[in-house]
Computed example of a mutant assay.
Amino acid sequence: MPTEQWHKSTYSHAHGGNRVEVSEGLRTAVRDSRHRHLGHLDFPAAEWARFLYSLRGGVTPPA
């Protein structure tokens, strides 16, 4: 992912909270902003969307 645009998760905050950064595109990459040098995990965008939807109480995203 040579041209990633990273942004912090809306659930991350500056006062000791989890610091997760995300880069979205055809694949979604996720990394710990405090340990960027350890790399990232990446997922197909559709799989990431299903994961987020399930966290919000759904089973699969609406078609």
Rank of each mutant, 00 (worst) to 15 (best):
V20R: 03
R34D: 14
H35N: 13
R36L: 13
H7G: 03
R27E: 11
G57P: 09
L55Q: 13
V20F: 01
G58L: 05
P61D: 02
E4D: 11
G58I: 05
H37G: 11
T28Y: 07
H15V: 06
A14N: 10
R27M: 11
R36P: 14
R50T: 15
T28K: 07
P61E: 02
S54K: 11
S12M: 03
G16S: 06
S54N: 09
P2Q: 07
P2W: 00
H7P: 00
A46F: 13
H37M: 09
W6T: 04
V59G: 07
V59D: 08
H37P: 05
H37D: 14
E21Q: 13
S12W: 02
H40G: 10
S54P: 03
T10W: 04
H13I: 00
A46K: 14
D32Q: 08
R31H: 11
E4I: 00
A49G: 15
R56D: 10
R34W: 08
E24I: 05
K8E: 02
V59E: 10
T3R: 04
R34N: 14
L55E: 08
H35Q: 12
T10I: 05
G58P: 06
S12L: 01
D42E: 15
Y11W: 07
R50I: 09
R50V: 13
P44C: 12
D42C: 13
T60C: 01
Q5M: 04
P62A: 03
V30P: 08
M1H: 07
E4V: 00
A29I: 00
V59L: 06
A29H: 13
A14V: 08
V30E: 08
P44N: 14
P44M: 12
L52R: 13
G57W: 07
S33M: 06
G16L: 06
F51E: 05
S12G: 01
E21I: 06
T28F: 06
A14E: 10
S9R: 01
G17L: 05
T60M: 02
